[in-house]
Computed example of a mutant assay.
Amino acid sequence: MSSAAAFLDDDEVSPKERLAELFEQIAELTGQRNAIDAQIVDIVAEIDHGGLAGMTGARSISALVAWKTGVSPRNAKTIAAVAARGGQFPRCV
């Protein structure tokens, strides 16, 4: 049963309480996604700074990121840019 169906069966939970629960879930998932993104940036930085991308056949780091992660080329370019400049902005990474 989906969480939406479970909600419809539970008359004791107000819509306001359910929304608060859903917002908590969003916050938790967003935190997990941010942690994963940071790990990806670290890996991309190691590939880039270690000169390891050359053996992949990818034309650029951002192309490599797009290929291996499935993100859009624009998001891949952002990830590659953050990885390249991580030393300048350690709090962002």
Results as ranks from 00 to 15, higher is better:
E46C: 10
A63E: 15
Q88G: 03
L29T: 15
G54W: 12
R74G: 04
Q32F: 07
R33N: 02
R59A: 13
A6K: 13
I26S: 06
R74C: 02
Q25D: 14
G57Q: 13
I36Q: 02
L19W: 07
E24W: 07
N34F: 07
I79F: 00
S14N: 00
R85L: 08
R85V: 02
R85Y: 07
A4W: 12
S62L: 12
D9R: 11
G87N: 11
F23V: 15
V82Q: 05
Q88R: 11
H49M: 09
T78W: 03
G54D: 15
A83Y: 06
I61K: 08
S72E: 11
F7E: 10
Q88P: 02
E12G: 04
T78A: 07
H49F: 08
T56W: 09
G54P: 11
I40Y: 02
F89N: 08
T56Q: 08
N34T: 13
K68P: 00
V65K: 00
A84N: 10
A76H: 03
C92A: 12
I61Q: 09
G87D: 13
D10N: 14
A84E: 14
G51W: 04
A81Y: 08
V71E: 10
E46G: 12
A80K: 03
A6R: 14
Q39F: 09
I79A: 00
D37M: 03
K68V: 12
R74I: 11
A76S: 01
L22Q: 03
F23D: 12
A20H: 01
P90C: 05
A63D: 15
P15Q: 01
E17D: 11
I36S: 00
G51M: 04
A63G: 11
L29F: 14
P73K: 12
S2W: 04
G86N: 05
G31E: 12
F23G: 03
K16W: 02
R85A: 08
T30C: 06
L29N: 15
I26A: 07
T78S: 04
G87M: 04
P73F: 05
